[in-house]
Amino acid sequence: MLSAGNDIVSLNEINVARTQTEPLYSKILSVSEIALYEKLKSAILFEHYVWLLWSIKESAFKYLQRIDPELLFTPVKFGITQLNIPKGYFPVSFDGNENTLTITGNVEFDNYKIYSRSVIYKELISSVVDADKDFKGVYSAIKYIDSTVNTVQSAAVRSFLIDHLVKETGTSNLTIGKNADSIPILFEGAKELQIPVSLSHHGHYIAYSFKLKH
């Protein structure tokens, strides 16, 4: 089954001091992921590490929820088994262009093994996951918007996604609804399309991913 999963975390909305406390990070990181940080601490700030793992786990949850709508999100049960921080990685400001190095990783849940691709800017962390290591047919993007009003952001991320889908598929009259399990569904007119989409917004940032059959 094709699926899609993404997540964005606005770092301006994150409480750095709280992130560094055990009650918070222990609800996101497993014991082995806390140990993994010891190997990575020269490369990435702890608060970035915590929310990077959150964004990968949330993306994986969204990906798997489309397959199993009953799934509950328990961050520590989604295990990050590998995280590759590229040499020279350093968070720069997000200027609207996605031009930073990609952090790749593996996330496991039950018998599923999923791959992640993430970027970290000074202002945000964004992740996308896929079951295919090469991310064939996976498209994603990030954008800054002025409004932090939930309904405005929700409409903006849909419009941002549809613009891209129209270009990739040549299909018009696209809309996005949600099914009874709150999973986003793409429609062409009244017809449901088998193109999985994933939406996220936080703070001033919106992001999406979708997957096309190749």
Partner: peptide, 16 residues
């Protein structure tokens, strides 16, 4: 999440 539009990242804050 659906009604109060709380961002999922803040659910951890609420629990704490």
């Amino acid at each position: 999440i659906k009604d109060l539009k709380i961002n999922s990242a803040n659910l951890v804050d609420i629990i704490i």
